[in-house]
Simulated scan of single mutants.
Amino acid sequence: MSYTYQYPRPAITVDAIVTAERNGEQWVLLIRRKAYPFEGKWALPGGFVNMDETLAESCQRELEEETALTGVVLKQFYTFDAVDRDPRARTISVVFTGQIPEPVPVKGGDDALEAEWFPIISLPEMAFDHREIIQKFVMEII
């Protein structure tokens, strides 16, 4: 199916904040980006929504493709819509959250060089607005 519109349209993405507890501390799952933009920087697992899937389905798919993590119950958290959040195009991200009991082994895949757990209070250099997304999550949820 082809889509033609008179006016430009924003792209829709999803991102997953997956947390776990280790030694009384909250950890968050991140991926290292393989490609432009922000190649080599850390980010939340996520990506563009396909035309034939819901936001939740897209988030589950991206989480599995980029980290090999499955079976996480995800709940919609917040929509981030700053005009300049992605240098490629006008992009709106719907962020989902999920929690598992403890960090489990993960493996980078698809467009992620690697996947790793980080203490949520000690984040590496992040891509896009993902540090601010995590900060909002910490302020409102944790």
Rank of each mutant, 00 (worst) to 15 (best):
S2K: 13
Y3Q: 11
Y3G: 06
T4L: 14
Y5T: 14
Y5K: 14
P8I: 07
R9I: 09
I12P: 01
A16R: 01
I17M: 02
V18G: 06
V18W: 00
R22N: 08
W27Q: 10
W27T: 04
V28G: 05
K34N: 12
Y36I: 09
P37E: 04
P37Q: 08
F38Y: 15
G40W: 03
G40L: 04
W42Y: 14
L44G: 03
P45Y: 02
G46H: 03
F48K: 13
E53L: 08
E53C: 06
S58H: 04
C59Q: 05
R61Q: 06
E62L: 10
E64Y: 11
T67S: 07
A68N: 13
L69V: 11
T70K: 15
Y78F: 10
T79P: 01
F80Y: 12
D81Q: 12
D81R: 08
A82R: 15
A82L: 11
V83K: 12
V83S: 12
R85N: 15
T91D: 04
I92C: 05
S93M: 03
V95L: 06
F96L: 06
T97S: 09
E102Q: 13
P105I: 04
K107H: 12
G108N: 06
L113M: 11
L113F: 00
A115M: 01
A115P: 00
W117P: 02
W117V: 05
F118L: 04
F118R: 05
P119W: 03
I120T: 04
I121P: 01
D129N: 13
H130C: 10
K136E: 13
M139A: 14
M139K: 15
I141C: 14
I142F: 07
